[in-house]
Simulated assay, not measured.
Amino acid sequence: MRHLQLSPAWFFTDGSGSQLDPKLFALLRALHRDGKLTDAARDCGLSYRHAWNLLQQWGDFFQTPLVEKRRGRGTLLSPLGHKLLWAEQRVAARLEPQLESLSLEINGEIEQLLEGAKPALRLHASHGYAVALLPRFCRDLQLDLQYCSPHDALAALERNACDVAGFHLPLGVGDDVARKILRKLRPRSHRVIQFITRRQGLMVQAGNPSEIRQLADLAGRGLRFINREPTSGTRALLNVLLQEAQVRSRDIAGFEQEEFTHSAIAAYIAAGMADAGFGVEAAARQFGLDFIPLAQEHYLMACHRKSLGHPGIHGLLSLLRGDDFHAAVEDLPGYSARYCGKVMTVDELQKHIYTPDQAL
C-alpha cells in the first residue's frame, strides 16, 4: 500500500546550508542504547567506517566531538551528542500529532484517486498512543483523524463537524471532571464506544534520583516540573489529583511550562530539562524513565445513535474489536483493550463511571 509519512528535517547552516543526515540521529540513538559503535553501526545498517566518518563529519561541522571514546566503556555520547539526540526526540514528539493528521489527510486524498472511495470516518480525539495506532489498521476505512482536546472533540460532534469524538474519564477520582464531560452527552441521541483504559502517573528520571514517590514530593523542593496544556484531559486529571492531595500548583516549580503530548513530556524529562512530569506509562517506558502510577482512566468515544449503522462507524467497530488491534494495544505499557469496541448508552456509562475498580 502506498503511504505518505511526514517527518521533520534538520538544517544547520554555516553559510552554505548543510543538511544533517537523518542517519546521524539513528546512530546517536543506537549509541545511547548500546554504548558500542560496532553494535550501533550494525543496528543502523551502516559499516563501522561509514558510521565513524558520519560522526567525524558532523563533529568537524560543530567543531566539537559528538562522541567520546573511553577505555573499557565503549563509545559514549558527548554533551553535544546528547543535546542533539534529545532535541530531535523533543521535536518529533511535539510535532507528531500535526504531522500524523496531515499525512492521514493527504493519504486519504491519494487513496480516493488511486483505489476508489472507502467508507470515510471523521474522528476528533486527543493524541495518545492507542489512538495513534488506528491508521495502521484502517485497511477498509478512510480515517480522517484530527487531534484536539476532549472539549473541542465533543463540541465538534455537537455541531456535526466530526462523526466520532474521543474523550477520557478518570476512574474513582475527579467526579467534577466526569460530570462536566457527561453534561455534553445526550442520553437519547448519543452512544458511547469503549476504547481503552490506561494508567497515568508521574514520569521521573531513570533511577528516580530525586526520590519522588507522590505528588506532595513535587512541592517546595525546587524540582523542575513539565506540564501538559490547560485544555488537555491529562491536565484536568492532574488538577484533580493535586486538589485531593492538597498540593498547591504554585508550589511546584515549572508548573507553567507546557508540552502538548505525552511523548513530548517524556522526551523533555529524558533530556534532563525537568525532573518530573505527568502522563501515561507508555511514554515513560518509551524514553527509559521511571513511572509512578497515580490513576487509571477510560478513553472513550462518542457518536450519534443514528450513525451506528453507517459504513464508517461499522468499519471502526470492526477494527476496534479485531484481535490484531487488541494485541497492539496490549503491547503498550499500562494500556488495556479488554472491552474495546463495546457500545453502551450514556445512562449505562453514568452507572459505572463512579465505581473505581469496576470495568465498564
Rank of each mutant, 00 (worst) to 15 (best):
L55R: 01
L55G: 03
L55I: 14
L55E: 02
L55H: 03
Q56P: 00
Q56D: 10
Q57L: 06
Q57K: 15
W58N: 06
W58Y: 15
G59R: 01
G59M: 02
G59W: 02
D60H: 06
D60N: 08
D60L: 03
D60A: 07
D60P: 02
F61E: 04
F61Y: 10
F61N: 04
F61V: 10
F62T: 10
F62N: 01
F62Q: 01
F62G: 02
F62S: 03
Q63F: 12
Q63A: 15
Q63R: 15
T64A: 12
P65S: 15
P65L: 09
P65R: 09
V67Q: 01
V67Y: 00
V67I: 13
K69I: 12
R71E: 13
R71M: 11
R71S: 13
G72I: 07
G72H: 02
G72M: 09
R73W: 05
G74I: 08
G74M: 10
G74C: 13
T75Y: 00
T75G: 00
T75W: 00
L76Y: 05
L76Q: 15
L76I: 13
L77D: 00
S78A: 15
S78P: 09
P79W: 05
P79M: 13
P79R: 09
P79N: 07
P79I: 12
P79H: 09
L80S: 01
L80Y: 00
G81K: 05
H82R: 14
H82F: 06
H82K: 12
K83T: 10
K83Y: 04
K83N: 11
L85H: 03
L85E: 07
W86M: 03
W86F: 13
W86Q: 02
W86C: 00
A87I: 02
A87P: 00
E88A: 14
E88N: 14
E88V: 06
Q89H: 05
Q89E: 13
Q89Y: 01
Q89L: 09
R90Y: 10
R90I: 12
R90H: 11
R90N: 09
R90L: 14
V91E: 07
V91M: 10
V91K: 05
V91S: 05
A92N: 15
A93V: 00
R94K: 05
R94L: 09
R94C: 04
L95V: 14
L95R: 09
L95C: 06
E96P: 02
E96N: 08
E96D: 13
Q98V: 14
Q98K: 14
Q98P: 00
Q98T: 14
Q98W: 08
Q98C: 10
L99F: 05
L99D: 03
L99M: 12
E100T: 10
E100H: 04
L102Q: 12
L102E: 11
L102K: 10
L102G: 05
L102I: 11
L102N: 07
L102W: 05
L102H: 10
S103I: 04
S103E: 07
S103R: 07
S103A: 15
S103G: 08
L104F: 06
L104A: 12
L104W: 04
L104Q: 15
L104D: 07
E105C: 05
E105G: 10
E105V: 08
E105D: 08
